[in-house]
Amino acid sequence: MSKINQIEGKAVPVEGNDIDTDRIIPARYLKEITFTNMGKYPFYDERFDAEGKPKGHPFDLPQFAGSHILFVNQNFGCGSSREHAPQSLMRWGIRAIVGESFAEIFAGNCTMLGIPTVTVGRADMEKLQALAKQKPETQFLLDLDKKALYSEGKEHLKFEIHESKRNALVNGTWDSTGLLLANAGKTADVAKKLPYVAGF
């Protein structure tokens, strides 16, 4: 598993608080039994009209094509636990998300996929979204070791990230199965001590 220390690229702003995972990916796409096609669907109903023509969502604007960083506001990813939401963003090209706050399950799902979810204050996010809109060619660098976001090579601001999430990403242990499996013996010991596991 790869260590994730830095993410570099252009940023795409998606504005608004409380953008739920139904808006990120409508439930009808959850009927597919693999994640393979999810990159086609992020924000589908906000991006396309009934005939499938783009309505001018940032994900379809040429200046944001190829962006790897997503700028969002408060409580991003609230609602359903569907991992299809971060899968769809990742498969579209997003490698890191900077926001004011994240819903818990969504942020956990992102970590499991190696996508950092880092937070900044409201005023900073307004500036970041404005910068991405005004100068969409801006190259950002998100450094997890220094907990800093750089634009065009200069330090722009510091961000927050949950320390255990940061550790998992920078040490390459964000895909947790290996860590958990290594403790199979200890797991069995805990199970043995729980009376309900043995049927009391």
């Binding site: 959850l30 009927k31 039994i33 693999t34 994640f35 636990s81 569907r82 991992e83 320390e163 255990s164 999430k165 550790n167 998992a168 040490n171 242990t173 947790s176 860590l179 958990l180 403790n183 200890k186 797991t187 805990v190 199970a191 001590k193 729980l194 309900y196 596991v197």
Partner: peptide
């Protein structure tokens, strides 16, 4: 506390899950 298996190197805790319920939508993958 009754379900902690270990503290992981990341700082997270490994928690034993006593009951796992699954359904058709989020399990095939």
């Amino acid at each position: 506390d009754a379900h902690v298996v270990d503290k992981l190197p990341t700082g997270q805790y490994q928690l034993f899950i006593g009951l796992h319920l699954i359904h058709e939508v989020t399990s095939p993958q």
